[in-house]
Design a protein around this nucleic acid. Sequence first.
DNA 1: AGACTATAGTTCCGAAATAGAACTGTCAAA
DNA 2: TTTGACAGTTCTATTTCGGAACTATAGTCT
Lengths: 154, 154
Amino acid sequence: MKWDTLDEEPCSLSRTVAVVGDRWTLLILRECFLRVRRFEAFQSSLQITRHLLSERLKKLVRFGILRRVPYSEAPKRYEYILTQKGLDLYPIIMAMVHWGDTHMGDERGRPLLHEHKICGKLFDPVMVCSECGEPLHAKQVHVHAGPGRDQAVG
Amino acid sequence: MKWDTLDEEPCSLSRTVAVVGDRWTLLILRECFLRVRRFEAFQSSLQITRHLLSERLKKLVRFGILRRVPYSEAPKRYEYILTQKGLDLYPIIMAMVHWGDTHMGDERGRPLLHEHKICGKLFDPVMVCSECGEPLHAKQVHVHAGPGRDQAVG
DNA sequence: AGACTATAGTTCCGAAATAGAACTGTCAAA
DNA sequence: TTTGACAGTTCTATTTCGGAACTATAGTCT
């Protein structure tokens, strides 16, 4: 597999995997959604090596998921902020959190609870059909080849 | 990071990442949802090395995401089928496909289109609040520590 | 019988990625 | 002038991955 061109595969999952398909990147994104923005903060909360953190942040900036924004002129210091493209990853992160809550929980209960500011309640994320609003299940979905497909899948 | 105990972290995202947080595993799961079930089929459609495929399938079975089911007695042959726990990963996969469609597309258009058998229409997945049904956005969610949290996050 | 094919793996070795620690550079505060 | 905070970079040892060959079981073809 040529991982360096995975983002050009005729498969939307592959293209997403090219960007967020590794453990550190997903954990970094978790921190971003928890409002962590600075190199030292990522490093100390994740215990990631500085080398890998640096590389992953660069990659996320390169793909337009984070913006590197100066917050101090002298010395020059930057923080990393989610772009809209990055914020749009929220359903992926929430879907993963919810699956973990459901299937990987232990007797201690959930690590985090989520409150929806709009309705004020604690909630779970639910994935629904954009057309009829019903919850989605794998077996109720039929897949068709789209225009961007050659022979590969996804 | 001790990846071998990531599934015991007090963070649901970490626990999910422990299971599906690598590129090959996500691509294998894509194939599973496209009804691929056999070793040779995974191998030839993904071009994954047989060694890694074997290891990843074992891991998915160990975590209860796939079941290894005999389909031939002599010679003994098995296929890999999603359990309910595995089927429940569907929102993660769909969220990734949708993000890829939205942010990583090219001029050729989408590789695949999804039809909801319930309503008969082509759809996009939308993540909504279980309580009020409104679409979720990162900035409208407030996070609280839950019972299973000690000092870590997620 | 003997050779060939299909399926599902396992083994081995060189290449690439990761972990862990130390080092660099800039500036402010003590 | 020394220390500390911050944001990285560099180095080496270890781990994981890629690619190819090999093993095992049984059916089919000649």
